[in-house]
Computed example of a mutant assay.
Amino acid sequence: MIRFAYTIVYVQDVSRSLQFYQNAFGLQTCFLHPSQTYGELETGTTKLAFAAHGLAEGNLPGGYLPVDHKANKPLGIEIALMTDDVPAAVAQAVAAGASVVVHPSEKPWGQTVAYLRDPDGTLLEVCSPVQTKPQTGSTKDPSS
């Protein structure tokens, strides 16, 4: 059986990234290698991890395209973090160093969503749980 274990984001400074996510979202570090080149955040059943560019270069001999925090557009992948209070989480993240890409807005499926970039340039979605809306227009009695 396969299960999703973690996402690793390659960054310049692992300790700084862990500190940002703690300050921005209250996520706690559950592991930091003594070399400071790899660390993980406690996020539930999966982990959000960070590895230094040097460690990635050793693992990926053909190289990789690093996230560029100065690029106008983020890479086509995002990390989604769920909360009941999206505007408050966005404000806290901005205070910790994130930049807003799209301010919080209500989606047609009943979810509030905002998009940020962390200090390394990684795209973040901050969202509320999807709220199921009662269906209207049904005349059928559910008890029959």
Rank of each mutant, 00 (worst) to 15 (best):
I2N: 13
R3G: 13
R3I: 04
R3E: 12
A5D: 11
Y6T: 09
Y6G: 02
Y6L: 04
T7K: 10
I8V: 09
V9D: 05
V9C: 10
V11G: 12
V11D: 10
D13M: 07
S15R: 08
S15H: 04
S17V: 03
L18W: 11
Y21N: 06
Y21M: 04
Y21L: 09
L27G: 05
Q28S: 03
T29L: 00
C30E: 14
F31Y: 15
L32M: 11
L32C: 01
S35D: 13
Q36L: 11
T37K: 09
Y38H: 11
E40L: 07
E40G: 02
G44H: 09
T46C: 12
K47Q: 11
L48M: 10
L48N: 07
L48W: 05
A49V: 00
H53G: 07
G54R: 13
G54C: 04
L55R: 14
E57I: 02
G58F: 15
G58T: 05
L60W: 13
L60P: 00
G63D: 11
G63P: 00
L65P: 03
P66G: 06
V67R: 09
D68C: 02
H69M: 06
A71W: 11
A71E: 14
N72R: 09
N72A: 13
K73C: 11
K73M: 09
K73A: 14
L75Q: 14
L75D: 13
G76D: 15
I77F: 14
E78D: 09
I79M: 12
I79Q: 06
I79T: 15
I79A: 09
A80W: 00
A80P: 01
M82K: 02
D84F: 08
D85S: 09
V86K: 05
A88H: 01
A88P: 02
A89M: 08
V94D: 01
A96Q: 02
A96V: 00
A96G: 10
G97A: 01
G97Y: 07
G97P: 01
S99K: 11
V100K: 07
V100E: 07
V102S: 11
H103K: 12
H103S: 14
H103L: 06
H103G: 03
K107W: 08
K107S: 04
P108Y: 11
W109P: 06
G110I: 02
T112R: 14
T112L: 10
T112D: 01
V113F: 00
A114K: 12
A114R: 05
L116T: 05
L116R: 00
R117T: 08
D118Q: 03
D118K: 00
P119L: 08
D120S: 07
G121N: 08
T122P: 00
L123M: 13
L123G: 04
E125N: 04
V126W: 06
S128C: 01
S128K: 01
P129T: 13
V130T: 15
V130N: 04
Q131G: 06
Q131T: 13
Q131H: 13
T132E: 15
T132M: 14
T132A: 15
Q135Y: 13
Q135G: 10
Q135D: 12
Q135P: 03
T136N: 06
G137D: 14
G137W: 14
S138R: 02
T139I: 09
T139E: 12
K140S: 10
D141K: 10
S144I: 12
S144E: 15
